[in-house]
Design a protein around this nucleic acid. Structure first.
Lengths: 135, 135
DNA sequence: TTGCGTGCAAAGGTTTTGCATGGCA
DNA sequence: TGCCATGCAAAACCTTTGCACGCAA
C-alpha cells in the first residue's frame, strides 16, 4: 500500500530535518523549491495526510483561517510521552516524565476520564521565549 | 463598547444553554432558526469572535476543513481550572483539582515551561462514552 | 442623531477533487 | 503491464469583508 516516490521522500525528509519547527503546506512547497525540488502543493497535502495517518507527523490546526502546521513526530515512540508546544516559537518539546504518567492515572481514577496522550498537547511558553520576552 | 442586541443575546443564550456541547457557527444558525429566530451567519461569526475575546466562549479548531466548534466557558472562573474534552461526544469537563495544579508547577520546575492553562485542553474519552463503546 | 450592529452578496484563503499524464514495481 | 502518484485547474468550504440599511443609546 503506497509507493515510494521522490516527492514523498523529500517531504518526509524535510519534515524530519525540521522536526523542531512546524511548517505549513505552503512553507513545505517553498522550502523544497528553494532546495531545487519542485513539488506540487496537492502532493504535499496528500503526503501530509498519509504521514499523519501513519503517526509520523502531526497536524496542528491554525487559529481562524490560518493554515494548519505540520510537525514530524517520528512514529511509535511519540505515543508514550507528552508534548509541550510553545506558543511563542512553535517548538514542540517531547517529554518523558513519570510524573506526567501519573497524571493520566489520576485523571482516570478521580475523573473517570481516559486521557489520550497522542491527541493531547500542553500549551505554554518555553524557557527561550520567556527570557526573550524579558529583553 | 458594544451594544446589546437581540441577536447577541440569542447567540450567547444558546451557547449558555448548550454549554455541555460544542456547536459550529452553522449549527448555531440552524438551532436559532428552529426556535424561530433568524440570525445571519455573519452575525454569528462576529459574536463568536467577541465572546471568545471576552473569554466567555472558546473556539476549538476542527480537523481538516471541518468547521470550528464553539463552546461556552462562562468567563473568568474558567481560567483557574483544567478542561478535559471528550473525543467521543465533544463534551467539555471543567475540572478543579489541586493535583492538576501541581502539574503546572512540576512542568515549570522540571521542564522550564510555563503552562498556559487557558490554551491547554486534555483530550480523552469520558465515562459515558467508554461504557457506550462496550455495548 | 451618532455610531455600532446586521445581513446579503462577494471576496479571500485553505484544502480537496477531477482528470490526464507520469512513474514505481 | 497494472496501479498508484503527480500536478494542474477547478471546485468545495469555511470565514471574512464591503456596503447599505437598521437599531441601540
Amino acid at each position: 500500500m503506497g509507493y515510494n516516490t521522490k516527492q514523498g521522500e523529500q517531504i518526509e525528509g524535510l519534515l524530519k530535518a525540521t522536526a523542531g519547527e512546524h511548517l505549513t503546506a505552503d512553507e513545505i512547497v517553498r522550502r523544497l523549491a528553494e532546495g531545487g525540488n519542485t513539488v506540487g502543493k496537492t502532493t504535499v497535502y496528500r503526503w501530509l495526510d498519509r504521514l499523519v495517518g501513519q503517526g509520523k507527523a502531526r497536524r496542528f490546526a491554525g487559529e481562524k483561517s490560518e493554515s494548519a502546521c505540520y510537525q514530524y513526530t517520528g512514529g511509535a515512540e511519540c505515543r508514550n510521552h507528552y508534548h509541550l508546544k510553545c506558543l511563542g516559537c512553535g517548538r514542540l518539546l517531547h517529554v518523558n516524565c513519570e510524573y506526567l504518567d501519573r497524571v493520566a492515572e489520576h485523571i482516570l481514577e478521580h475523573h473517570g476520564f481516559v486521557l489520550n496522550e497522542e491527541k493531547t498537547v500542553l500549551y505554554g511558553v518555553c524557557v527561550e521565549c520567556r527570557t526573550k520576552k524579558e529583553d
